[in-house]
């Protein structure tokens, strides 16, 4: 049976609008126009134990609302949601004891105190037995390389260091499901890699299910086998990342560095050519024309110095997808 199951979840918010025009501020103080926004419109999906799911979509698409419903903070207007055999908002305490949530932009550590103290408090909050707490802390501290930071007040940590501690805090009680809301926002490359590594490990070794909302496509690419795309409160795509790529980005790209700038001209088989100084970017469809032939044609037509073949940038794919779906 699926670990997470959502069926026909709907959620609307009411926001009040300020009237426009002159004296709007004044009138706004007395009369308000109400507007109903559909944050989630009939969302359904299931996630099995141990899946690593990337949940992506533009700002305001309904990502955090879904996460909030799944973590029991919000009650949906209608629909059915069952996670580990519990309805999150009805059995809040029992539910949240088994999940972990990381907000990239909010901290759950105590600003003025050493990291260790925050962890000790979490130990009491989640009633973790002392021995397993010691063991777990040691394990996480080694994996995330934060042993040396434990006695430092949180306010003195860099963003990357803090984020690593934040993740340790969320994993301390060994949750079965982990929700990550933009965990890698604004952090340095070293911390980012460490973060991804531990997430992969947690998933592999302990079978923790993870749902990751992010704008960083590298995160999705390195971590997630499955992606869900949401826009305007509707689920637009749910499936493997490589299928998404095949559907929306069937092309390969060749970056050709030339010895001198050449004005672009058509080469047979190329779908699109972009020239910037002495660098050409050539897109082609490998189903129609094999890569080595395309390279050969380029080599014959251009003064090549170097050459890189790659997939289309995933950011571009997503941007294109949003565009096609009129978001």
């Amino acid at each position: 049976m699926a670990q997470i199951e959502l069926r026909h979840i709907c959620k609307t918010f009411t926001v009040s609008l300020r009237p426009e025009g002159r004296m709007s501020m004044l009138r706004g103080a007395f009369v308000r126009r109400k507007k109903v926004i559909k944050a989630l419109d009939d969302i359904s999906f299931t996630i099995d134990t141990g899946e690593l799911v990337g949940y992506i979509g533009p700002n305001g698409a309904g990502k955090s609302t879904t996460v909030k419903i799944m973590s029991g903070i919000l009650t949906p207007d209608s629909g059915y949601c069952r996670i580990m055999n519990r309805i999150p908002w009805q059995e809040r305490v029992a539910h949240v004891a088994r999940i972990g949530v990381v907000f990239g932009q909010r901290t759950q550590l105590w600003w003025d105190l050493p990291v260790q103290d925050s962890f000790d408090l979490l130990k009491d909050i989640y009633s973790i037995p002392f021995t397993s707490y010691k063991h777990r802390l040691h394990e996480l501290a080694t994996a995330l390389d934060i042993s040396a930071l434990l006695t430092t007040p949180v306010r003195q940590l860099s963003l990357g260091q803090r984020m690593r501690c934040e993740l340790a805090a969320a994993l301390l009680h060994s949750p079965r499901i982990l929700f990550l809301d933009e965990p890698t926002i604004g952090i340095d490359a070293v911390s980012k890699l460490a973060l991804r590594e531990i997430l992969k490990r947690e998933n592999r070794e302990n079978g923790v299910t993870m749902i990751l909302t992010t704008h960083d496509m590298d995160d999705v690419e390195t971590l997630c086998s499955r992606v869900m795309v949401i826009g305007h409160g509707r689920l637009l795509y749910d499936g493997k990342l490589h299928r998404l790529k095949a559907d929306y980005a069937p092309w390969r790209s060749i970056r050709a560095i030339l010895t001198e700038p050449v004005t672009p001209f058509h080469i047979e088989g190329a779908e699109r050519i972009k020239a910037e100084g002495n660098v050409w970017t050539v897109l082609f469809n490998p189903d129609i024309i094999p890569a080595h032939i395309m390279v050969e044609r380029l080599a014959r037509a251009l003064p090549l110095r170097d050459l890189v073949i790659g997939e289309q940038n995933i950011d571009e794919i997503i941007a294109k997808m949003y565009q096609e779906m009129c978001l």
């Binding site: 029991g72 903070i73 949530v101």
Partner: peptide, 12 residues
């Protein structure tokens, strides 16, 4: 500040 969400996420 939205800290209340955080509190809702804890089993106590």
């Amino acid at each position: 500040t939205g800290d209340f969400d955080r509190l809702l996420l804890r089993p106590c």
